[in-house]
Nucleic acid binder design. Structure first.
Lengths: 161, 161
DNA sequence: CTAATGTCTCTAGTAACTATAGCTTCAAGA
DNA sequence: TCTTGAAGCTATAGTTACTAGAGACATTAG
């Protein structure tokens, strides 16, 4: 039995009878799609708990780290900030509290998401218009620049020339 | 006539017969919704050209700065990076070139926007489900945490407790 | 056993700002 | 005219969320 396995055995034995899974930082990286330095960074800022170490001082992760990291990555991808993720993780560490707070975070985020979607939808419309309007012409006939200037304050950037 | 007006008169006289508009950095900020330090930052990184100065060394902006800053802010809001905006501005400064490049930037951005929209739409669905599922319960019954962990790799974070 | 790959720490760099400190300038009222 | 408070100046440092590099030690495949 390796030192790594010993450490992990001491740390955790999961529900099922089969042997505990452990991961190096590289394996964790491959599993979650999160880069190695980013994993260390999450540990540094306290989002991810410090894992056990092997005899050679290398990080040894367990299933719980995998879950937590996956949670963090997924949340980040969905646009939650580190602060929000921290809140969610803290709340999840105290499951006896009412979930009103979590609900508030989710609701606030939902509002933001709706706002972002509507802005992206109008951007999409503009971009599609641009791409169709600007077909093999010259820049002076291209509406991309105008569109971006116009929609801000009704001014035309190309008028400067 | 103030020194500021002199500088601006020398810089620019617009098509219409009326007197040239000039702005302090604060006015520019109010007009565009862009914070004062951000305007100075844009000048520093070369996105916004250096304006004239008053006798007392204060920045004096003209209409063209307003347009350009509005363009930058609008583009930023729509998610274009500084590098992309720089490209667009450079292209707009050479209006004799074919607009294929601008088109490519817009198309690339359109692809990204579509991707973002679809991810935000599924996030929206998840968040709505969360908000509805989590009604006055306790955290341990709340699906927000599970949802965020599950969708990453099918693991349940709360199982750690 | 050696070579290649992986991991370690530490420092510094990136994008896109934002804030602070300590000063000068400007505009408006007494 | 003086003064006082807002606005502006420069310069530096902090923020968020990473990413990259240097140089040393660990692990693993052949």
């Amino acid at each position: 039995m390796t030192v790594a396995q010993k450490i992990l055995d001491a740390e955790k034995t999961m529900g099922s009878g089969k042997s505990v899974e452990s991961f190096t930082i590289g394996q964790l990286s491959r599993e979650t799609g999160c880069k190695v330095p980013t994993i260390r960074y999450y540990e540094q800022i306290g989002l991810l708990p410090e894992p056990g170490r092997s005899a050679g001082n290398q990080r040894v992760y367990g299933q719980q780290h995998l879950s937590r990291l996956a949670f963090i990555r997924h949340s980040r991808e969905l646009g939650f900030s580190q602060a929000e993720i921290r809140q969610l993780l803290e709340l999840s560490d105290h499951p006896d509290q009412p979930c009103a707070e979590i609900n508030a975070i989710a609701q606030k985020h939902l509002d933001e998401v709706n706002h972002r979607i509507s802005r992206l939808e109008s951007l999409k419309a503009e971009l599609e218009r641009m791409v169709h309007a600007c077909q093999g012409g010259k820049v002076e006939d291209c509406r991309v620049i105008d569109t971006l200037a116009d929609h801000a304050h009704g001014n035309c950037l190309t008028a400067e020339h």
